[in-house]
Design a protein around this nucleic acid. Structure first.
Lengths: 226, 226
DNA sequence: ACCTGAACACCGTTCAAGT
DNA sequence: ACCTGAACACCGTTCAAGT
């Protein structure tokens, strides 16, 4: 009986949640391209077609991953603070979740409005933008750009290489630096000066701070006269 | 002799340029996912392995596409105008090329520094940002965010569906609108108000204008005190 | 230099069948 | 309800061989 439970722990029942969790773990470990139906099935000790009972196709599985991330976002309570401060707080909460899952962050880009938790976040952002004085159309576009900014911030972070161990990542960074530093100092002086920053992210907090603030300040800048 | 030339026109010699051009055309017509080694070979009346003489692997072919786009960018001449106006002009020139090739715009995101024309554009942007007072590290990060913004602007344009004919695209838009308009008016009032804007791009010039200005104003907003 | 043929190790997905 | 087996139509890529 005890042995039976131990075996069951190794090969539990297949569920949507377990598959999604397995996919996220696999993506963080070996990259999103390692997430295939066949590989997921193998890791779960099951036949590939077993997954098709739980998800109609692979795209719906990816949608499940996006939904999982979005449901992990802890929205800050609405306050009386100015709209831009609240917007920063909401986006920061979303950014925190994306940063925790850089390998699958990109999946969220096109799937926010396909899940309940995503809709709740979008509604909140739209409300703040309307408060700021934007039209419904502008608010829609700006919210989309905000999401794109956060996703890009995470998934394009310099020096990020998901699914590679430290040694090969550092070698990659070293070679990228070297190739940039080999550029002509006359023709590409600024590229040379920025070479290190392109190859790796020297200061993570500052990097994300700047990226988030870039968007917030942009929204303030394009805000119609009140 | 004349017949021979006519046949040659159908099946010319394979070159890197021809392959890249064929790939871009195919991507615009049927989407980037239709661009496979095997399909490209088929369209050129050649065996898949023939392409491997011209490109070591598929990623280098995609790199070739990105380079082609970047080499099409016509940079405006440097002037005495303020840095932000010049930056807007440079990004607008890049945006124009991306807009002409929405299906492959995303390829540029991670490949600017892999080609000469990309480096020239990056150098120019970095120079303007340094002029504005940013550090080499900040300039690197901001230039990356600028590129991300432009690429997202093009490849995530609402209602864009590359490789679908008008009928199915409009049906897609109609259904997206309908699904958003079915949301609860109490819980998602702003989503309802923005539903149309999320489903299609009502006014293209305004959309791109806002997206570009969002970035420029963002950079102005995070600019250090002078 | 430029291309072919055959083969390998993968994909997502369908469909009928098992329990 | 939940999973399997066999099959289909694809991928990218290697390697030896042809001209």
């Amino acid at each position: 009986m005890a042995r039976k439970r131990a075996e069951a722990a190794v090969k539990e029942r297949l569920t949507r949640d377990r598959i999604v969790q397995c996919a996220i773990t696999l993506a963080e470990a070996e990259g999103l391209e390692a997430v295939t139906i066949r590989r997921l099935a193998q890791d779960q000790g099951v036949t590939p077609m077993a997954l098709y009972w739980h998800f109609k196709d692979k795209d719906l599985l990816l949608e499940g991953i996006a939904e999982r991330l979005l449901s992990d976002v802890v929205l800050p309570p609405a306050t009386e603070k100015p709209w831009d401060e609240q917007l920063r707080e909401v986006l920061f909460a979303l950014l925190a979740v994306l940063r925790a899952h850089p390998a699958v962050a990109d999946l969220v880009r096109t799937r926010v409005m396909l899940s309940e938790p995503g809709l709740v976040i979008a509604e909140r952002v739209l409300g703040l933008l309307r408060t700021a004085g934007f039209t419904a159309e502008q608010a829609a576009q700006l919210s989309g750009h905000g999401l794109n900014s956060l996703v890009s911030l995470v998934s394009q972070e310099p020096g990020l290489m998901v699914g590679e161990d430290r040694a090969v990542r550092e070698e990659h960074i070293r070679r990228k630096k070297a190739s940039l530093q080999a550029l002509s100092p006359e023709r590409f002086p600024h590229m040379l000066a920025s070479a290190d920053a392109f190859a790796e992210c020297g200061n993570e907090p500052a990097y994300f701070e700047l990226g988030l603030e870039l968007f917030i300040q942009g929204v303030r800048g394009v805000r119609p006269e009140q």
